[in-house]
Nucleic acid binder design. Structure first.
Lengths: 342, 342
DNA sequence: CTGTTAGCGCCTTCAT
DNA sequence: ATGAAGGCGCTAACAG
């Protein structure tokens, strides 16, 4: 049907040169107003569309940014992406999505692919190292492509990050449990090679110590973020001599599993056992026995990451700015841990 | 640091021409094996990366596909996108995400933007018409860019679609409520300009008629997909003379709101009142009073859409194929409507 | 103000 | 089997 029409087509029609057309279309100041109008009008009538690929090749900027996440179908990551998209859209950037499925090999592959695709920046949440770490990150930095970590960060020189204060989140949740009178608090953690989980754990530990409580290694269990993992954890924990009466879980899903298993065993929540999660997944609020959780403000995190990128991309290439934004976590206290209210 | 290196750089180094390098890299059969190996080796050593933008400009194919959804932070859409990404990734396509926020103006804008960005195809879930419909869709078809609708479809000539049988979904849910002994079933519907909601409604209506029940206009309320909307709907419904004893909701969130409001009024579920939702959002399964819902297999829907796109893109340009894939909905019966079990 | 020229990086006839 | 040349569509010097 309608063939692709270029600035040459409209130049020919107007007996002018393509450069003039280009200038007119780009609001170049030194062009006669009359010709500008004429060009714009005929361009519209011919249904001309600028070829962004040509522009990208010419300028070296694709106007695409890459976003790498472990998976997209989690409320947290989807919300972050929403924030990124909304912040970047007005600036003319398109968002390319990549998933790692928690496989660092896929992560490296995605990094290379995005660089190949000439993205103008990469925003990502790293995955735990499951494979050989080749120089993918180094490659990105070498190419001078702005790289920004959100939530799951890595300590790399010259790389900015937007995270929440996970230590504080862990501390707040644990302190809350202590305030509710829990005296033996267990912790469901995640992959310790990820800083977020390490920091949540450290916050938990510090809260215990600050309150004169004893930290016990055996009360910390590393689990996957799944309902089943939470159930299994309860099984383990209840078989200990020092039976815990509360859990601070780094995962809402594990917290849910724990709650389900506790109910199964007719242990009343929150009277006999308190549970808090992390991430403030929608379902934690919806449950009849709503679950206390730490909110990470994912939408804000996405927007902030995008803003950090925009700052970065505007600067002169020579100066490497490293910005570390740390957002405040927010504890949402709900029924699963409120003895005072219920 | 490391400058962008091109085929010319490696050609110079080897005292051959760029064309030869290009051929060697592309496994052109008429190239000496020794030079091929040499080229590939030095390319690797120089850390050469093909510039996809140049390739795209040359070939006219960007290897990007655009995905347009109302919003990304809903489990359904995020899961569809996950499916699309997973199916397309092995074929070398990148996925660009766009959101409409249920605004048809944004939808048109996104369509134009994607076309401008020279995407090789567009997969989308349409939004209700909230603004003037300009020729955005027509424009896409004119450019011969494969367009595939998923879930929320539009009847346009030559456009393929992947949907579920919403009529059947509505029918199944309603029939189930009837089987459970409900005799006055209300329906929470959505924007009737969207076929999915119209079809769910029609399925509901047909089920009533097939069972010799009376369809009453007043029992159908159009609501937004939100918890609050569900609560308000209950208020309206309970004030009717013919007070309903069940709801088939086209939205899980509205169903949840309805349940919350019913509990507030001490109406027991499912004994006095049954509720079913639609979409099988994760929380429907997690609730203590789990919610019956219709699953739309979003992951499969995404993969299927991607496959339809791949078929389309391979064909010779001249033939327009229009494929309508209809997936089967699956009713997940849970506590909110199981009188027999509980 | 506008035309001419050149080049972004790659591929692909056409020669040789 | 390889070199030379042209072009994908656009912009940015450099002229005039």
């Amino acid at each position: 049907m309608s063939e692709k029409i270029t600035i040459y087509d409209i130049a020919k029609k107007l007996n002018i040169t393509a450069a003039t057309v280009s200038r007119a279309l780009n609001n170049n100041p030194k062009i006669k107003e009359s010709t500008r109008e004429l060009v714009i009008k005929t361009a519209a009538s011919m249904n001309y569309k600028q070829n962004k690929l040509a522009l990208a090749l010419k300028s070296g900027r694709s106007n695409n940014i890459g976003v790498i996440v472990p998976r997209i179908d989690s409320n947290f990551f989807a919300s972050v992406i929403r924030g990124i998209e909304e912040e970047l859209h007005p600036h003319g950037y398109q968002v390319i999505i990549c998933q790692t499925h928690e496989d660092s090999k896929r992560e490296n592959e995605n990094l290379y692919t995005l660089i190949d695709a000439q993205v103008d920046g990469i925003l990502m949440s790293v995955t735990a190292v499951t494979n050989e770490n080749d120089g993918a990150f180094h490659n990105v930095l070498e190419k001078n492509v702005p790289l920004i970590f959100f939530d799951r960060s890595k300590n790399i020189d010259g790389v900015s990050s937007v995270t929440i204060n996970d230590f504080k989140g862990g501390y707040m949740a644990t302190q809350h449990l202590i305030n509710e009178g829990c005296c033996c608090i267990a912790h469901l953690s995640g992959d310790q090679s990820l800083e977020i989980f390490k920091n949540r754990f450290l916050g938990y530990k510090q809260a215990l110590l600050d309150n004169g409580m004893i930290f016990k290694e055996e009360l910390v269990i590393s689990v996957k973020s799944s309902v089943d993992a939470g159930k299994e954890a309860i099984e383990t924990l209840l078989s200990l001599e020092t039976r815990p009466d509360a859990i601070f879980s780094s995962s809402d899903f594990a917290a849910l599993g724990a709650i389900q298993e506790l109910k199964e065993r007719h242990i009343s929540i929150p009277q006999e056992f308190c549970v808090t999660g992390f991430s403030n997944e929608p379902f934690t609020k919806f449950m009849e026995l709503s679950i206390t959780s730490v909110d990470q403000s994912p939408l804000e995190m996405g927007k902030m990451s995008a803003r950090v990128f925009l700052e970065q991309v505007d600067k002169t290439e020579t100066i490497k700015i490293e910005k570390k934004v740390v957002l405040a976590p927010e504890l949402h206290i709900r029924k699963s841990s409120s003895r005072t209210d219920s």
